[in-house]
Design a protein around this nucleic acid. Structure first.
Length: 773
DNA sequence: GAGCACTGC
């Protein structure tokens, strides 16, 4: 039997410190009431030596009587009861037994035997557990006792859509199993691999498992793969499901558990060839639903009215209001506070505290939502209340206890993709029934609650779709198609996805990859495509990066690529717009936003700024978080470049081509995102798609640039292109001759000027040739 | 003269 040692620290992957600490993370839906997480992580790690550990053989451990895939709940219970840890032989701590008691009271525990029997009988199993059932923490442990992966030299993997979840669940389960996090139980997320030779249960992001699959098509290192939160239907989960369906045939020994929270489980069952289903009830309190009798014309106005009404008439308990975006939320918070002050003055209402909540809010401000509600103003006064006004970040990512009232106007911002003009944009759209249910459920976490839906019951029944469309139907699939090719899936059309995307979307993606020379004319992966797939980047960014040594500026393009794959670095608070803009002007480069961002990065990395980077960012209206993230991404990309032997080179800064080389390299990746000024006005026209666009007001570029590359198409009140840099048309023809094959262009001003440019280039070339003779 | 829902590698 395989021995997994040596298990010294030397063999462990190096890991980088990042700014996420599960200890400090308040969003722990899976932490039960009794859990105290202080001081964990040390204490008993030093108590035993690894040499005395039973390892590699069940003999002598409390798992010795276990027959793989034929164990019983009684056996597992006996092993769990100790006195020694069944997985590493060390004595179990008193705290372990305390947690064990809680665990055995969880709803999933009642069906442990049933789960085991089903798990043993079938290869693929669908498990439905509502919130509070304990599925995320318990099912993987049930699996461990029966699958005994460590005796096969394999692991059990459990995927999560979000990093914080993977980290914090792993930490909780390590506690439950009385092991040190990173040893028997670990996690793996981007930038951090906290696993070791001993790891038998690994929590990870779905994207991470997908990355692994690209180099290990059969996922050989796993004996069981559990996909958790499958109902969220992230792009990665959808692709993994398609892949696992195929791997299941190639690897009959692999077991697969699909865990979902919705009643839409039949869809998963059908997809996995009528896999058996096990459903476990959750543990939540009832939530009473109220609808408006008539449709509301202005949902924000109706929402404010409802919140104030609740405050005036309903008993104690906090309120959660769902709105769609930052501006709407900040605005609503102001109005609610104003009205509430008046209610307090005139009607002796209880104090009301209002908190905004959205993803781009600084962490310290996000934390404030966990502050307790304000106390009554006088000892016998009316109780205080807090209102949280949130985007749908509070629908899945984040749980706030103490919410009793939910106000749901029925809208959220959703990504939509239009393959015709190749544009992804955010649109305020009605939510789905599943979302509405999820929102309502937020009112019943601690006690019975109420949900006020600001739409009619008829609208709920007839107008809302059942489920939000999965991400795969709402995205540009260029990078997905590249991933699938790297996964060894050649026939994309027949790849069995749960919801196949529109053929037009696939064709667009293939076309884009072909122009980028990642796929050849037969749709086969090229050497460039294979290399591009190694980078966790959009194909155009990856191609730009890989091509950049040809333009003598790969160091700079590496920095720029990192900056383009993190949130906006420029901060512009509503209270200090003018000063923020002045600061931005300090970094402005006349040729465009890309170069401006690069200037910011270089300034940030200068000795003066690094002395106190946080202060520097504050003073210069830069996002410290974004710049730090960019640094982190840069390091990761740099390692991949080194591995792929992409050279790191720079043009000397004194060289007059320093900036020009960078602009040319931009064209190598973004030649499909070019616009030309339309006549003499402000309007631009995009190449080939012929979309009328305007330069985004945030640009540093003047109106005098005839040709520009842009990073992003933003569809709001108008069509904007954002992050733009001036380029020369000769570069387009020179660097991307296939895309700029003028015979493929529609007749018009664009084609005419490109033809003139091409002519000029030919004349120049001829002259050069002539002079050489 | 705008405004970035949320994730992930």
């Amino acid at each position: 039997m395989a021995d997994r040692r040596p298990d010294g620290d030397g063999s462990r992957a190096k890991r980088q410190k990042i700014d996420m600490d599960p200890q400090a993370n308040p969003y722990l839906a899976h932490m039960y009431e009794d859990s105290s997480n202080n001081g964990y992580g040390n204490g008993y790690a030093n108590g035993y030596g690894s040499s005395s550990r039973p390892n590699g053989s069940p003999n002598g451990s409390s798992l010795s009587g276990f027959k793989r895939h034929a164990s019983t709940m009684a056996q597992a219970h006996a092993a769990e009861d100790g006195p020694n840890n069944p997985f590493n032989g060390t004595p179990l701590s008193p705290r372990y037994f305390g947690i064990l008691k809680t665990r055995r009271g969880l709803p999933v525990h009642a069906q442990r035997d049933e789960f085991l029997q089903m798990y043993q009988k079938t290869q693929i199993l669908v498990f439905v557990g509502e919130t509070g059932s304990g599925k995320t923490t318990q099912i993987p442990q049930f699996v461990l006792f029966d699958d005994l992966p460590h005796f096969q030299n394999k692991m059990v993997a459990c995927t999560q859509p979000r990093r914080v979840a993977a980290m914090s669940v792993a930490q909780r389960v390590a506690q439950e199993m009385d092991v040190t996090l990173g040893e028997e139980v670990g996690y793996s997320i981007r930038f951090e691999d906290k696993t070791s030779q001993k790891t038998m249960l690994k929590y990870m992001t779905d994207g991470m498992l997908l990355r692994e699959a690209m180099n290990d098509h059969n996922l050989q290192r796993y004996s069981t793969i559990i996909l958790d939160e499958a109902h969220e239907r992230t792009l990665a989960t959808d692709i993994l499901m398609g892949l696992l369906k195929e791997v299941a045939i190639r690897r009959p020994d692999l077991k697969i558990v699909i865990m979902s929270a919705t009643l839409d489980a039949q869809k998963f069952q059908r997809y996995f060839n009528d896999a058996p289903l096990l459903a476990v009830p959750g543990r939540t309190h009832p939530v009473e639903i109220f609808y408006t009798p008539e449709p509301e014309r202005d949902y924000v106005e109706a929402a404010l009215r409802t919140v104030l009404q609740i405050h005036a008439t309903e008993p104690e308990g906090d309120i959660l209001l769902f709105l769609t975006g930052e501006e709407e939320i900040e605005d609503a918070c102001r109005k609610i506070s104003l009205e509430a002050d008046e209610m307090i003055r005139e009607a002796d209402a209880g104090p009301l505290k209002v908190y905004p909540l959205y993803g781009t809010l600084p962490p310290a401000q996000q934390q404030r939502i966990f502050d307790p509600a304000p106390p009554p103003r006088t000892p016998d006064g009316r109780p205080g209340r807090k209102v949280i006004v949130s985007t749908n970040i509070a629908e899945t990512s984040l749980t706030i206890d103490g919410i009793v009232y939910v106000v749901d106007p029925g809208f959220s911002k959703q990504k939509v993709y239009n393959p015709r003009i190749r544009v992804e944009s955010l649109l305020v759209s009605p939510i789905s029934k599943a979302s509405a249910q999820q929102r309502a459920g937020r009112a019943g976490r601690t006690r019975p609650g109420k949900c006020f839906r600001l739409y009619t019951e008829a609208a709920f029944k007839k107008e809302l779709i059942e489920q939000t469309y999965p991400e795969i139907l709402r995205s540009n699939l260029a990078s997905t198609v590249l991933e699938l090719k790297k996964l060894g899936i050649d026939d994309l059309v027949h790849f069995d996805l749960m919801d196949p995307p529109a053929p037009e979307t696939l064709i667009r993606a293939l076309e884009e990859l072909n122009y980028l020379a990642c796929l050849d004319d037969d749709g086969e992966l090229t050497a460039l495509g294979r290399m591009a797939s190694e980078f966790p980047l959009d194909p155009s960014l990856a191609v730009m990066l890989i091509s950049s040594p040809e333009f003598y500026c790969s160091n700079e393009i590496l920095s720029l690529t990192s900056l383009l794959s993190v949130p906006q670095v420029f901060v512009r608070p509503a209270s200090a717009r003018k000063r923020a803009d002045e600061m931005k002007d300090l970094f402005a480069h006349p040729d465009g936003d890309h170069l401006t961002m690069l200037n910011v990065y270089h300034a940030f990395k200068s000795a003066a700024a690094q002395d106190n980077p946080k202060q520097w960012c504050h003073d210069h209206f830069q996002s410290y978080r974004a710049l730090q993230q960019a640094d982190n991404v840069r390091l990761q990309l740099k390692r991949i470049m080194e591995r792929s032997e992409v050279e790191l080179v720079s043009t000397p800064f004194e060289d007059k081509k320093y900036y020009e080389n960078i602009r040319r390299a931009l064209v190598a990746g973004f030649f499909m995102q070019v616009a030309k000024r339309d006549g003499s006005g402000k309007s631009y026209l995009t190449v080939k798609d012929n979309q009328n666009v305007l330069l985004h007001p945030s640009t540093v570029l003047g109106q005098d640039s005839e040709w520009v590359v842009y990073n992003e198409f933003v569809l709001t009140t108008k069509n904007y292109i954002r992050t733009v840099t001036a380029v020369k048309p000769e570069w387009l023809i020179d660097i991307a001759p296939t895309y700029y094959d003028l015979s493929t262009f529609q007749k018009g001003d664009m084609k005419a000027s490109l033809l003139r440019v091409a002519d000029k280039m030919r004349r120049k070339e001829a002259l050069k040739g002539g002079s050489r003779k």
